[in-house]
Design a protein around this nucleic acid. Sequence first.
DNA 1: TCAAAAGTGTTTTACCTACACCCATGA
DNA 2: TCATGGGTGTAGGTAAAACACTTTTGA
Lengths: 213, 213
Amino acid sequence: MIFGFDKGELKILLIERNEEPYKDWLALPGYFVEQQESIDEAAARILYELTGLRGIFMEQFHTFGEVKRHPQGRVITVAYFAMIRLSGAKELKPVTNYAKKAFWHPVESLPELAFDHSVIFNKALQKIKRKIAYQPIAFELLPEKFTLTQLQTLYEAVLNKKLDKRNFRKKMLNYGILKELDEKQKGVSYRAAKLYKFDKRKYAKLFKNELSF
Amino acid sequence: MIFGFDKGELKILLIERNEEPYKDWLALPGYFVEQQESIDEAAARILYELTGLRGIFMEQFHTFGEVKRHPQGRVITVAYFAMIRLSGAKELKPVTNYAKKAFWHPVESLPELAFDHSVIFNKALQKIKRKIAYQPIAFELLPEKFTLTQLQTLYEAVLNKKLDKRNFRKKMLNYGILKELDEKQKGVSYRAAKLYKFDKRKYAKLFKNELSF
DNA sequence: TCAAAAGTGTTTTACCTACACCCATGA
DNA sequence: TCATGGGTGTAGGTAAAACACTTTTGA
C-alpha cells in the first residue's frame, strides 16, 4: 500500500495485474519474498521496483492469512504501507513483469480490487487515520517545504473531515515541531504563504517514542 | 504472548522448550501453522493446547521476518497477544510435545528468552501499553466482577506508573462503561469495596470503533 | 481499637471548540 | 480593483492534574 498526496487528495498506487489469477484486475502492489531477504527488505525492494525510490518511510501493519484468500492455494501476505512525496509528475515505469502498469488513484471511490485487497486497503486506511494523530507521518507525504494550509488539507484528506483553520494552526505551531522558514510560496496569484519544515530534531527531543497530536 | 494479571502483577506465559534448537531454554509459546488453518485459527489452537481455554481475546500485533532469526533456516513468525483471566490457580498442563512445562512469569525481570523472543515480547508490551489507553482490553484480564482498585492496579502494572486514585475513579466512572453491582467484596479484613462489571453494550453503543480513554 | 483499604471534592491549569474579519498578492 | 487564499484572537466549556482526610470493616 503506497500512499501519496497530490492536489489535496490522498491517493494510493494501484497496478493492473499481468498474471493469473485475477489477470487484468486492479490490485495493490506486492509480490513474493525471496529466500534470502527479510520481509522488511522485500517490502522495500518491491517499492523500489515500482517507483525507483529508496529510503522511503514504510511500516508493516498487518498479516493476512486466511486459507482461501488466494484461489490457487495458501498465500500469507504481510502488508506494509509506505508514504511518498508526490511533487510534480513522478514517472512510474514498473520494472516488474507482474504488472502491466501502475498509476495513482484517489482513495475515495476505489474500484473493486483483486483478491482481498479491498480488505487490506481498508485496514491500512484505518491504521493511518489513527496514526496520523500521534506520529508525524503526515510530513512524509508533503514536500520538504510546505505551507500550513497544505498540511491541514492533508489532515483533512486522511481524516476525511474538515478542520478549523485557526485551531489547526494554533495546535500545530504549539507542538513546536515545525520550523518556520524565511521563505514564501511562489507563483500563486494570491498572498503567498509562509513555508515550514518539519523539525526532526525537536520532535526527537520532545518525544522519545511517540507524540500525542 | 499470553498475558495474565495476578496479585497486582502483569504476567506472561513462558514455556521451557523440549526441542532443538534452544532445547531447555525459556521461550514464548508458539508453533507452526497447519496447512488447512488460517493464522488466526492457528493462534487460537496453540493457545487452547497450552491452556485449555477457548474464546479468549487475541490480537495479531506484528510479523517477524528477519532472515537469521532462526538458526536452522528461515522462519517467519506472526505474533499475537492474548489476555486471559487468572482467577485462582488455573492448571497448566501442556498438551504439546514441544514444551516441557509452562508457567507464569512476571513481566518485570524476564529472563533471557530463546530466539528473538525478547524482541517480540518488548513489542507486545509496547503495543498493549498504548492500546489499554483507548480500548477496553484491561477487562479481559480481570475477573468478571472487579473493584475499581483492582482495575487501577492493573493499569498501573501495564503502564508501569502510579495513578491518582481519585482521578482514576472519576475518569473511569465518567466513561459510563462500568456497571455498578449490588454486591461487595467478600473475605477481606477491611472495608469491602463495591464490585463492577464492564458493560459491553454501553461501550458498543458509545463507540462504534474505538474509545479514547 | 487498630490496621487496611474504600471512598470522596475542590481548585487550578491546560486544552478544545466555535466563530469572522482584514490582509497581501498577482492577474 | 477584484478574486483568492493567508493570517489572526477571544471567550466559554471541558477535561486533566494536584492534593488529604474520613469511613467502613474484620481481626
